[in-house]
Amino acid sequence: AEKTGIVNVSSSLNAREGASTSSKVIGSLSGNTKVTIVGEEGAFYKIEYKGSHGYVAKEYIKDIKDE
């Protein structure tokens, strides 16, 4: 099942092309942005936001229960 997560940073969080800190940054998400978690790979979540996919470090995403 898809989960919703909240970007848990004070400034912004980089979204990357792949599940690695050396992957190209494809965008950034500001704190408290809601994202859909579609998968996980190592220390990263694969997320969907406004129709695009990217990878973000798990430690900066807070899971919330689907309402």
Rank of each mutant, 00 (worst) to 15 (best):
S11Y: 07
A15F: 15
E59F: 06
V7D: 01
G54I: 09
H53M: 09
E41M: 07
T36L: 10
S23Q: 02
A1M: 14
Y49C: 08
A57L: 15
E67Q: 11
L13D: 03
A43N: 13
R16F: 15
K58C: 04
S12V: 11
V9Q: 07
V35M: 01
K62C: 11
K46C: 10
A15H: 03
S23N: 04
A15P: 04
K58N: 01
H53W: 14
Y49F: 13
S20L: 06
V9R: 07
K62I: 14
I47R: 00
V56H: 00
S52R: 13
V9L: 07
S10Y: 09
N8W: 09
E48G: 01
E41I: 08
S23L: 04
I26F: 03
G39V: 01
S30M: 14
I6K: 05
F44P: 00
E59T: 06
S20F: 07
G31N: 15
L29N: 00
A15D: 02
R16V: 06
G51Q: 06
S22Q: 11
E17Q: 09
S52V: 13
I37A: 00
I37S: 00
R16S: 06
R16N: 08
L13C: 15
S52E: 09
Y60C: 14
K65T: 13
D66N: 11
V38I: 14
R16P: 03
V56E: 00
G18E: 12
K3I: 10
T21F: 14
G31H: 14
K46L: 12
Y45S: 04
S22V: 08
G5A: 04
E2I: 15
S12Y: 12
E17G: 05
A19P: 15
V7E: 01
I37C: 05
D63H: 09
S22N: 12
V38K: 05
K65V: 13
V9F: 06
G51H: 05
V38D: 02
N8H: 10
S20C: 09
V56S: 00
S11H: 14
D66K: 09
K46G: 02
G18D: 09
L13P: 07
V38Q: 03
G18H: 14
S23F: 05
G31K: 14
T4M: 08
V35T: 00
S11V: 13
K46Y: 10
N8E: 06
S10M: 12
V25W: 05
F44Y: 11
A43T: 08
E48T: 09
S22F: 07
A1W: 15
E48R: 10
I47C: 06
N32E: 07
G39S: 06
S28R: 13
G51K: 04
V9K: 08
S12K: 12
I64E: 06
D66H: 12
T4C: 13
K24Y: 04
E48A: 09
E2K: 15
V56I: 08
K65S: 13
E17K: 07
E59W: 06
A15R: 03
S52H: 09
L13Y: 01
D66W: 15
E41F: 09
S23M: 05
S22A: 11
V9Y: 06
N14F: 13
S28E: 11
V7Q: 03
E67C: 13
Y55I: 01
E40I: 07
S22C: 13
H53F: 15
Y45W: 12
T36M: 09
E2S: 15
V56P: 00
E40F: 05
I37R: 00
G31L: 09
A15N: 02
G31Q: 11
V7R: 02
Y49S: 01
G31T: 11
K24P: 11
Y45E: 05
S28M: 12
H53R: 04
G31R: 14
N8D: 09
H53V: 14
G27P: 01
G51C: 07
T33Y: 05
V25N: 04
E59S: 07
I47N: 02
I37E: 00
V7A: 04
S11N: 12
G5I: 05
S28W: 13
Y55P: 00
G27L: 11
E59V: 09
A19T: 07
N32C: 15
S22I: 09
A43S: 10
K58F: 04
Y45Q: 05
Y60T: 04
S28C: 14
S52F: 13
I37Q: 00
K58D: 01
A43Q: 11
Y60Q: 05
K58A: 02
E40V: 07
I26M: 07
E2Y: 15
N32Y: 10
E2D: 09
I26H: 02
N8K: 12
E17A: 12
A43Y: 08
D63T: 14
V35W: 02
D63M: 15
K58R: 06
S22R: 09
S10A: 12
S11M: 10
S12E: 10
E40W: 05
